[in-house]
């Protein structure tokens, strides 16, 4: 992996964080999980290694800014990166239906996983709220995948 590629992933990481924080400030309550969408799309487009490393790094950064137990997001995003990354080449990444189904399954997995991790590793009470985030993620899936593809094409890093 050359310097340009590493820089590309670093910028992507930074921008997805900006997008997430910005939207949360703007809409305050319910926002799509752009971090999760970034991990899913980058894993699907770039494969398992990039997916798990990127997921881990983004998860750690997200953990520092959230009130969830430290490591929970890193754990889940790493796992998502690995699982989705394994589908690289097996799923048609340009197919809108595939994108929506994938995002739906991954969001369900993430929300259940987060709920379990908070239950085990935090004293805070946590309710499992699926729908706003699930629907928003599905709604944003196709445009976000398109955006990410354009972003990859812009940089055209080595696959």
């Amino acid at each position: 992996m050359d310097v340009k590629t590493i820089f590309f992933y670093f910028v992507t990481l930074f921008l997805s964080l900006l997008l997430q924080i910005g939207f949360r400030n703007l809409l305050s309550k319910f926002t799509p999980n752009f971090l999760l969408l970034t991990v899913v799309s980058i894993s699907l487009f770039r494969g398992v290694f990039v997916g798990e490393f990127f997921g881990f790094a983004l998860g750690l950064l997200s953990d520092t800014l959230s009130l969830n137990p430290f490591g929970s997001q890193a754990f889940l995003y790493t796992l998502v990166g690995y699982l989705v990354g394994r589908q690289n080449g097996k799923i048609d990444a340009d197919n809108s239906v595939a994108q929506v189904v994938l995002v739906f399954l991954v969001t369900l997995f993430y929300l259940f996983g987060l709920f379990l991790l908070i239950t085990f590793f935090s004293s805070a009470e946590k309710k499992l709220i699926l729908f706003p985030e699930l629907i928003l993620n599905i709604g944003f899936a196709v445009p976000f995948f398109w955006l990410m593809k354009e972003w990859f094409n812009l940089w055209s890093p080595r696959r």
Partner: peptide, 15 residues
């Protein structure tokens, strides 16, 4: 993946 998950899990325990 297992390595990264272990680190995350370690962070969770330490938290």
């Amino acid at each position: 993946c297992l390595f990264l998950l272990s680190i995350s899990f370690l962070f969770l325990n330490l938290s």
